[in-house]
Design a protein around this nucleic acid. Sequence first.
DNA 1: CTGAAAGCGCTTACAG
DNA 2: CTGAAAGCGCTTACAG
Lengths: 339, 339
Amino acid sequence: MTSVTIKDVARVAQVSVATVSRALNGHGNVAEEVRRRVLAAANELRYTPHAAARSLSSRRTQTLGVVLPDLHGEFFSELVRGIDQVAREHRLHLLVSSYHGHPEEQGAALRAMRGRVDGLLVMSPFVAAPGPLAEELAPTLPTVLINTQHATAGVISLGVDNYGGAVAMVEHLVASGHRRIAFIAGPSDNFDAHERLRGYRDALHRLLPDAEEWVLPGDFDEASGHQAGLEILGSKQRPDAVFAANDMMALGCLFVFAQGGVDVPGEIALAGFDDIPLARYVHPTLTTMRVNIAELGARAARLLLIQIAGEALPDEGRAALRPELIVRASSASVESKRS
Amino acid sequence: MTSVTIKDVARVAQVSVATVSRALNGHGNVAEEVRRRVLAAANELRYTPHAAARSLSSRRTQTLGVVLPDLHGEFFSELVRGIDQVAREHRLHLLVSSYHGHPEEQGAALRAMRGRVDGLLVMSPFVAAPGPLAEELAPTLPTVLINTQHATAGVISLGVDNYGGAVAMVEHLVASGHRRIAFIAGPSDNFDAHERLRGYRDALHRLLPDAEEWVLPGDFDEASGHQAGLEILGSKQRPDAVFAANDMMALGCLFVFAQGGVDVPGEIALAGFDDIPLARYVHPTLTTMRVNIAELGARAARLLLIQIAGEALPDEGRAALRPELIVRASSASVESKRS
DNA sequence: CTGAAAGCGCTTACAG
DNA sequence: CTGAAAGCGCTTACAG
């Protein structure tokens, strides 16, 4: 791996390394003819600057760090795709790191980014333990938090309006004639799940003051939706609508209903959250809230770039992303069915 | 961002920076008491080594580069997940880069990795243009190619046995009693697609010497499967089985069949390739070849690590991954249906 | 076991 | 416009 360095280029172009550096970085103050000679030499030698050396002296890495809780599933791939899009426009690299669901390793992941990145995009969906995160982040790098509860002082964060989305879904279900609406919750230590539950509760109490809330436990996985579905089928008085905190659980529930011969939405309407690709393929197709995850990633990346550049942060672009209600067959209105 | 350096630690611990470096890197030849003092100082100052500086002097980056054609979809997220798993076990970072479907930018992406990574995992599914890739790779870094046609001299590559998988699927369809088997092809410039088509052809000619091959064009997207489905429905003599080069096209085809009132598998059996999550959720559930993409990524990463370590490459672990036949409802045998 | 020094490959004031 | 030199923060022979 004996690679060619700036010295080799300097020798071939018959100039100093300083001039090579200036010419290659487009620093204006280089004679046109000299610049051409340098470019030619660099080209001939297939020279590529050594990134670590450049970073060390310029204090810039041209890299964005992305720290995620996990790498599983569509959410993260979409998020990374959105970030990558922006990074690419700015010719920046992406260093991704996941702490595989071990929040306690998050700190190590963050620290390891020192000297590798110019800024950090970190997603920390855990409800608990804001301390370590804030502590780790404080003295370090420009950072944007994604989907976190912790509006740590001085650290920008960006997220999805899960609360508003859940409210909108309950409004839709109520408007469709449903009165007894059950909710399948997500993991209790997850902030998104927490917000969706809060939206369900608030909207229910506001729109149907007499209705009782009915919350079934879940963990965002299909199996827990399945479990909740069984419980619902076994209950004395069934709900006329079930709102799951995410699509995967809605799907798990849907299968139980299908096996149990329950007509969806005839007997029980069903709704999810996320709009995963599957949602439009199942039968009946699933009503849900669409969240544009790639857009979330892209916006977060843009906020980070602004911060790195030391510019003032615009107000627009900092607001939480609003999910969009997607009405499909699983939540047809009670009226229309009865007629 | 005034960060603490090795000098600060040295001062606090009252030793030289050399000793700090040795103590922190676990170099044995440090007095136990001194080591403790250094560790304590580092801890107290919350010191984290500057990665670029370390890379520059040690010639190691502790980072693996991943160069992908794209970041869209489950294939890539699974691949990255598998790679990440192995990287993590070895405390390595992942620098990901996609050239967004512009093969001509692949070279730039590869070059930009210099000084940033210890090795490269590159996926280049294009049938054409082996030249640039080989040229770019030649003098550079330890590399493992994923799913490429180009068994470039001296560069390891690892892939999926697409040919064998396609053969196995045709064998299954024939064994199930199907005789007139159409194939929906993938993009002509894609190596995976190319191999699957070749498998279909070879198996068909071998098992059903009198049968004519029937290849419909496609591009791996659902819409092209849809298109192919329409063409099939409009044909004078319909096939009794359709084998799509991937699941998404099979799904597109399935919808046309469903809309056209075609009984699957009663009138026409259907099979795909990949076993995407959707495959088990559609109706009827889709017969397909399962490819363990995360495993592909993990294996490729392991091969790369072996190469970086300068060790001899084992024969096992270099063989292409064999896809697994997953028989579902969409390809029930003709016999069983007629009875 | 420990330190002084060279060196990794760049960039960037500082002179000229 | 150009070059010599210092410096970025580490690691690693080389002495002792």
